[in-house]
Amino acid sequence: MSASVVAQIALIGLAKSGVIAMLAVGIVLIYRTTGVVNLAHWAIGLVGVVVYVLLTGVDVVPPLPAAAVGLAVSALAGLLAQRLVFSRIHRGQVVTMILVALGVGSFFAAVSQMLLRGQRGEIIVTPFLPGSTVDIAGAVILASELITILVAVAACAVLLPWLKRSRSGRALRAVAQNREAAQLAGIDAARYAELAWVIGSGLAGLALLLLIPHSAGEQGGVLSVVHLVPLGSLLIPAFGAALVGGLISLPAALAGSLIFGLVQELLILAPPPISDQREVLAFVVITVLLLLRTERFFASNAELEALRS
């Protein structure tokens, strides 16, 4: 096995990690501030992609601005979901909350299919990133994959310090840690909950816009039936990544996205029983993470109580 092949697989895995990381960060951000386990995350991102497909399909808007509009639509969809639906549910009603998230996901998936006028099968999507390949020390990958890695790193490099240092970021974390105390300190909890939804949903839109329009390399992308369903093709790995940090810790979620992207891709190089069963292994890892109840390691009891009440 030559080093360049390993490097190539690793880079492809990193690009997948980048997409998973952006989804996972959104999931964590929304869960921490509002207590919603967002099963609608994929579908909200998908609405942005569908708007992008419609805008580029009629050749009126150039691809890059269309992608920006798509991203904004995803963020708006998230804002509406929070304002109209999720803000009305009590945090203690866990089963209702999950079912509602599933319903909101189904709604946005159905709206996406409606916007595409019920076209069945695969829809060819114009890319907005270059389709050329890049040679990095013998490893040849698509330019769009390299850009995906860079965008994911940049998004995290902006978001994490912002959450840590800026006034809004600190307010957001205050709401996450103790909503009532934050409100007593004069923070508008409802507004920051909406901010978390906007950022998280925007990231979901960005992740899907980097993934789907470039999924077929030179030809652009293919929007197929595996994307057009409420849970999409990557939402479960993204939940797995977020679960590494107990849906609470962002750095741990980023480490998790390396497991479900990079490590999973690298296992292609492992001997047959393992390389064939990579997906099953991922499901086993997620189940183990669930059973470990990883949130214990990342939050105080008080914070866990706050999430559930």
């Binding site: 909350m97 479960i236 997906e279 499901f283 669930l290």
Partner: peptide, 17 residues
């Protein structure tokens, strides 16, 4: 062992597995 959404997600992964 698991409650609420942890269990719901576990059933999703079971179904997939």
């Amino acid at each position: 062992r698991l409650r609420g959404f942890y269990f719901a997600i576990a059933t999703l992964t079971f179904a997939s597995a």
